[in-house]
């Protein structure tokens, strides 16, 4: 069984991001880069499937600049067999372009399962997975929190409002993964050594014509500080009045 895992390098959520001088992208200076947390669930699940079957190949693919190699190497250290690095200056904000470039590389592999995180924690678009399904002509199940493989059928669970939905899907399929699916492993130290010998193939990303353009990017305005309406018992009357008349939530 061939499984492809699409991963993205994103800014650590604890990084204080700044908008770059052109006003259209983030300033990469001083940013700590991590593997998108939702993609860790995807990679972990692919590794578990391979371990359970006792055979097969896990290929990780990522699109981006030179720095992406470190994230791919880390995925190899966790246990992926080989990596594809689709070179681009930076991942474009255009999800369709990214999905097209990934689909162009994944199609020749004829993967049985294509894994993506449910969304990247930078752009939060959650579109590449479903778009890949469309482009590869495979069914796609998104935000999966439970996964069992029975032959060529996957039984997957999704957290939905107030409950859990169980879906059956035939392989090949695209699955996007949610928190709660599994507990991602640490790369072992032997894995880090083994990763040095595993191949990372590098090719230019076939992004095609962009269909989306970023006009401007701005940080949200700072939140206004709270207001003290009064103190002690005397404050209660005023608080209720403000909640009723100004906030209109009572």
């Amino acid at each position: 069984m061939i499984q492809a895992v699409c991963i993205k390098q994103v800014a650590d959520t604890e990084t204080r991001v700044k908008v770059a001088a052109d006003g259209k992208a983030l300033d990469p200076a001083g940013v700590t880069w991590i593997l998108n947390p939702y993609d860790e669930f995807a990679l972990e699940q692919a590794l578990r499937v391979r371990e359970k079957l006792g055979a097969g190949e896990v290929v990780v693919a990522s699109l981006g600049g030179a720095g992406v190699a470190a994230t791919l190497r880390n995925a190899l250290a966790m246990g992926a067999d080989r990596a594809l690095h689709l070179r681009a200056d930076a991942p474009p904000p255009d999800s369709l372009a990214v999905a097209r470039a990934l689909a162009a590389e994944l199609r020749p592999l004829s993967p049985d399962l294509v894994w993506c995180g449910r969304q990247a924690v930078d752009g939060d678009a959650a579109q590449v997975g479903p778009m890949l399904g469309e482009l590869l002509e495979m069914p796609c199940v998104t935000a999966v929190a439970g996964f069992e493989l029975e032959g060529r059928t996957a039984v997957v669970e999704r957290d939905i409002e107030g409950g859990r939905e169980v879906v059956e899907v035939q392989l090949p399929a695209v699955i996007t993964t949610d928190k709660g699916l599994n507990e991602p492993r640490y790369a072992s130290l032997k894995g880090i050594m083994a990763a040095k010998k595993k191949p990372i193939e590098e090719r230019p990303a076939q992004l095609g014509e962009p269909s989306l353009e970023v006009i401007s990017l701005a940080l949200p305005p700072p939140r206004s500080p709270g207001r003290v309406v009064g103190q002690g018992v005397e404050g209660v009357q005023e608080l209720i009045r403000v909640l009723r008349q100004e906030a209109k939530i009572l």
């Binding site: 470190a70 190497r73 880390n74 640490y186 790369a187 130290l189 880090i192 050594m193 990763a195």
Partner: peptide, 14 residues
């Protein structure tokens, strides 16, 4: 080197 950064990152996280 890259392998040192990887070891450090993994050890730090653990």
């Amino acid at each position: 080197k890259e392998e040192h950064l990887q070891v450090r990152e993994m050890a730090r996280r653990f």
